[in-house]
Simulated assay, not measured.
Amino acid sequence: MIAHLTDLQSPEACGRLVVKVGSALLVGKDGKPRRKWLTGLANEIAQARDRGQEVIIVSSGAIALGAAILGLEKGGRGSLADAQASAAVGQIALSSLWAELLGNHELTAAQVLITLEDLEGRRRYLNASATLHRLLETGAVPVVNENDTVATHEIRFGDNDRLAARVAQAAKANAVILLSDIDGLYDKHPSEPGASRIPMVWGVDDEVRAMATGDSDSGIGSGGMRTKVNAVEIAERAGIALVIANGKYDQPIARAIGLHGDDGIGTLFLARRHDTARKAWIGGRLRMKGTLVIDEGAVNALRDGNSLLAKGITRVDGGFVRGDPVRIEGPDGEWLAKGLAEYDAPECAALVGLHTDEQEKVLGYTPRSAVVHRDQLVMLR
């Protein structure tokens, strides 16, 4: 059980660890890898393996590396075509780099390229999970990145913070370390006088979300504190602890988890829940296909652990089909839950406000027990 940053040193408390490396840490201003720093990080990963821990790396940097090689402006992010071309070149450089650095410690690097759809679809998610588990069983170190060569704006994670949390879910990891350009979560913007780092957070609530901003000091990465807090919410549903730590230092993992004899420097987000594997997958999904707006009575029913019935729905938006994920909103527009719809959107719209005994006449067949069954529903608030 992880309760302190120093627990991430222990193979008993943290047998499987995901480490996310941002673009600004991996690639210098000249577009070339920061080899000295990366060599130190590879050494830390080897030390974790020697302690008996399994490690998965989620590595940014392909677009930045490829853009420098191709001579593209704006770090390869001037257009979708530039980003995809940069990624195609950069992935080769990135995988070769990790293979070399880990190979110096007699560790085998395994490249795993993932798109959003690979982790949003249940079957593909399970396939990705099986691959990660098998690689770890063989002693390899999976190096995961978003497959930016084929991903479009509509099917992208867009940041590797949330990707790292989803990979941790799929791999059943104990913890995630997000190495970034800041020491952790602060009670206000760290540039403001009197800003204080928060060493530990027990679950994400509205107060914590209000502390997060979308700013990043680097100008290279695509994330910010807001995406990191989003990653925390994904991880905690699976009972996974997450650490935000500063990667600008030499031996950043040691600094974060207190290997030099201190208490560690970062923000540790403790998981306040542990959903079933399926509910954790539903709760971690990022793309909703539609929205169901519900009345106050239905809000109370969901909070009591009940399924969502047609009687409590006031509006249906979107073009979803049965089995698609839908957003469930309260009457004030607050996003309350995610769930898998039991009906196509037109059927849902036809059932709005109807009691169960009124639904068969509309549908032409015996209605299902709910529009969203409680076993396929995850509360967010």
Score class of each variant (00 low, 15 high):
T6Q: 09
V18Y: 08
K20A: 11
K20I: 05
G22T: 01
W37D: 01
T39F: 00
D50M: 11
G52Q: 02
V55F: 10
I56D: 10
I57A: 10
G61D: 05
E73M: 09
E73I: 01
G78Q: 09
S79Q: 08
S79F: 02
S86T: 00
A87C: 13
L94Y: 07
L102E: 12
E106R: 15
A109K: 08
A110Q: 03
Q111R: 00
T115G: 14
E117I: 00
L126A: 05
N127C: 06
N127P: 00
S129Y: 07
H133T: 15
P142C: 12
E146Q: 14
T149L: 03
T149R: 11
G158D: 05
N160E: 04
A168H: 07
D181P: 10
I182W: 01
D183G: 10
L185Q: 02
H189Q: 06
G194F: 04
M200S: 11
E207I: 12
A210K: 14
G214S: 15
G223E: 03
G223F: 04
G224C: 08
V229K: 07
A231I: 03
R237P: 06
A241G: 09
A245C: 02
Y249M: 12
G261H: 04
L270Y: 05
L270G: 12
H274K: 15
H274V: 11
K279D: 06
A280V: 06
I282F: 12
G284R: 08
R285V: 00
L286A: 14
V293G: 03
G297V: 13
A298I: 10
L302E: 07
L308A: 12
R315V: 11
D324Q: 10
P331S: 15
A337N: 09
C348E: 11
V352K: 14
T356D: 14
E358F: 03
Q359P: 13
L363N: 09
A370C: 13
